[in-house]
Structure formats: C-alpha cells, structure tokens
C-alpha cells in the first residue's frame, strides 16, 4: 500500500519564507525515497518558481495577501498546489521560449519554463485560474 502524507501552509507574500517551505516539502519527498536529483534540483527549483510566481505576479508583491501551498507526497508522486489571491491568468498563454537567441539575454522569463521542464506536469486547477498544480512522479 502506498501511504500519502499532506502538508498545508498559508504564508504571507514574503519571498524570504520560500526556502523554508521548500525545505519541508523536499524533506517529505526524501522520506518517500525520491531520487537524489529530484530532491536536489527538480523539487526545490520548480517549487521555488511556483511560490515566487504566486507572490510576485499573483499577489502583486502585496505582503497582506497570502499564498497557500498544499503538497501531497507518496512513494508514487508529489502533487503540489500553489494558490494566490490574484485574479488568475492563462497558463497556456505563457509559452515564451527563454532559450531562443532573442530571449537568451533577458533577465526574466525563465520561471515557467523551469517549472515545466523540471516537473512532469504543470497545470491550472480546473475552475481556479489562481491555482497551479505541479506533479512529479517519483523516480
């Protein structure tokens, strides 16, 4: 039987809090025996991007607005939902490729690309355009 454990955080839009949340999710993934590369690269980078996006773009850097992070971890997969208090956006409309020559020297524009590259799936939760769900299968 595969047991699943859940984490649920509500934090203000404070960028300094991201690293501690990420560390707790990584710790839970380690307990579920995720691959070393997933623990050191995929999970921390993709989750940092998702939470930062929620704070900076979703909540417009308004410290009074919260971000909720719900993570379900099992020996099969990690599923994280990151919810902000913004108006939502169309995830599928954000598809600029930061690796093209014209975009390579841009300072921004790599966050969603990294999320999509490092996770198995990145989607908006149906009916909730301000909730992004990231899924990573354990290797």
């Amino acid at each position: 039987m595969v047991s699943t454990s859940a984490l649920d955080f509500r934090i203000p839009s404070d960028l300094a809090q991201i690293e501690a949340i990420v560390a707790q999710v990584v710790h839970r993934c380690r307990e579920c025996r995720f691959d070393a590369r997933q623990l050191s690269l995929n999970v921390p980078v993709a989750l940092t991007e998702a939470i930062a996006n929620a704070m900076l773009r979703g909540n417009g850097e308004d410290a009074a607005k919260e971000v909720r992070i719900r993570a379900e971890v099992s020996e099969a997969r990690l599923v994280v939902e990151v919810e902000d208090e913004g108006q939502g956006f169309d995830l599928d409309a954000c598809c600029d490729d930061p690796t093209t020559p014209e975009n390579l020297e841009r300072e921004d524009g790599r966050g969603l690309f990294l999320m999509r590259t490092l996770m198995d799936e990145v989607v908006q939760v149906e009916g909730s355009s301000n909730v992004v769900r990231l899924t990573l299968r354990r290797r």
Partner: peptide, 17 residues
Amino acid sequence: TGYIDSSGLGVLVSLAK
C-alpha cells in the same frame, strides 16, 4: 550553492551583460 532559481539566473545574466 545547491540550486539557483530563475531569478538568480536572471541576476547573473544582467550582471554579465
């Protein structure tokens, strides 16, 4: 350093430029 996110990469790009 264990990892860098897109903001960290962006700062390096900006400073190099």
